[in-house]
């Protein structure tokens, strides 16, 4: 009789342990400076865009999808407002929107979508292999979740990763930061070699 609470506690502990062991790795881990992280993607014209082709630019990397009505427009709108506040420094800043939903996000759709926010935002897609590799490289979670009828949604990481001019992860920013704070962060990174 008196063992029962103990057994329940043990079961709860074991379940908690399992939950921890299987928790998906997200972007909550603080990115380290480390080395440049190679990646290869395609723009809406089919041209290759790689980490090396972006050297010299500070890159804002955001992963999302156009079927996302809430989080993605908020973050891309935030990127647009940060870019506006950057003044001339915007010329050395490349914002990228990488789709986590290549099935629905055709190059044509992406071509119309990104400029709704800011003309400098480049939408990128890739082969399933290229995209899987870039998600892994940047610790992005992207899971397809069945929705109503033929619809599905994507559970996805939603922070903006900033790469320095050498392609190294230098910071993460997001719409919970003030515009001024992110502009300072980006200008600091631009000032570094």
């Amino acid at each position: 009789m008196s063992f029962r609470p103990v057994i329940i506690s043990l079961v709860v502990l074991a379940l908690a342990g399992l939950a921890l062991a299987f928790a998906p790795t997200g972007t909550t881990a603080r990115p380290d400076q480390g080395d440049a992280r190679p990646f290869q993607l395609r723009d809406t014209e089919g041209n290759l865009v790689t980490d090396t082709s972006l050297r010299g630019q500070v890159v804002l990397l955001y992963f999302g999808y156009t079927f996302c009505p809430d989080v993605c427009p908020t973050e891309l709108g935030y990127v647009a407002r940060v870019l506006r506040a950057m003044g001339d420094d915007v010329e050395r800043t490349t914002p990228l929107f990488v789709t986590v939903d290549p099935e629905r996000d055709t190059p044509e759709l992406l071509k119309g979508y990104a400029p709704l926010f800011h003309p400098r935002i480049r939408a990128l897609t890739g082969t399933p292999e290229e995209l899987a590799a870039v998600f892994k490289t940047f610790g992005v979670t992207a899971r397809k979740v069945p929705g109503a009828g033929s619809h599905y949604l994507m559970d996805h990481s939603s922070s903006i990763t900033v790469l320095d001019r050498q392609g190294r992860v230098a910071a993460t920013i997001g719409s919970t930061d003030t515009i001024a704070r992110s502009v300072t962060t980006l200008r600091d990174i631009l000032g570094k070699p």
Binding site: G26, T28, P69, T141, V145, L153, D155, H156, S157, S158
Partner: peptide
């Protein structure tokens, strides 16, 4: 009708 929720891992879901 949807609600956006954020998991402990920072992953957003509707």
């Amino acid at each position: 009708l949807h609600r956006t929720e954020t998991g402990a891992d920072g992953v957003k879901r509707m």
